[in-house]
């Protein structure tokens, strides 16, 4: 938690897999001046429902705006702020690093320490794949910077709440904001 209660929140939104839905969501973020740091979207376990994880910066009240405004989109079936549910959060990154044959061993050592993988090798480059929490990914990227990063891609955070209870996006839960503020 930083100043004025502003912090990074992890939200999950479920939406109908229809043309233009991503456009609606992205358009809303821009138009409402929401501060979105990352966004990852793909299929969910339910056919026809996509699942989006996004990270937004703001206060709890800001997040209530994000949630309630997003929930108003007809195609968004459900949205939750899982920040306080201690969810499993992961990110995948592919990092192409410059590495001569002399440097390669050193890079491989780093890859081992971070439990990352080398997925492509050439004479003077490597592609490293890492799956982990963002700070792990950040640390590896920082260290690899010493060798020269040629190219990089990150998926953005994906998240899932622990435990057996499933979170599916089939039913509109309507954001529960009745009552005391």
């Amino acid at each position: 938690m930083s100043e004025n209660g502003i912090k990074r929140h992890t939200l999950i939104a479920w939406m109908e897999d229809k043309p233009g839905v991503l456009n609606r969501v992205a358009g809303l973020f821009g138009r409402r001046n929401f501060n979105i740091e990352s966004l990852a979207v793909g299929h969910s376990e339910t056919p026809g429902i996509s699942r989006m994880t996004f990270v937004a910066r703001g206060t709890d009240r800001d997040m209530r705006q994000v949630r309630t405004q997003l929930d108003k989109l007809i195609n968004v079936t459900r949205i939750e702020d899982v920040t306080y549910n201690d969810p499993v959060m992961r990110e995948l990154a592919l990092i192409k690093v410059q590495a001569t044959s002399e440097e390669r061993a050193e890079v491989m050592q780093l890859v081992d320490i971070f439990r990352a993988q080398i997925v492509d090798v050439t004479l003077d480059s490597l592609i490293i794949q890492i799956v982990g929490k963002e700070n792990q990914v950040n640390s590896l990227i920082e260290l690899l910077g010493n060798f020269g990063i040629i190219e990089m891609v990150r998926t953005g955070r994906v998240a899932m709440v622990r435990g057996a209870a499933s979170q599916t996006g089939v039913v509109d839960t309507a954001v529960p904001v009745n009552g005391h503020y």
């Binding site: 009240r61 209530r64 705006q65 929930d71 108003k72 904001v177 005391h180």
Partner: peptide, 17 residues
């Protein structure tokens, strides 16, 4: 009737949706 109006502009005490 619109939950998104709650606290959008003004800090409120009680929301009745």
């Amino acid at each position: 009737i619109d939950p998104a109006e709650m606290g959008k502009n003004i800090t409120i005490d009680t929301a009745v949706i």
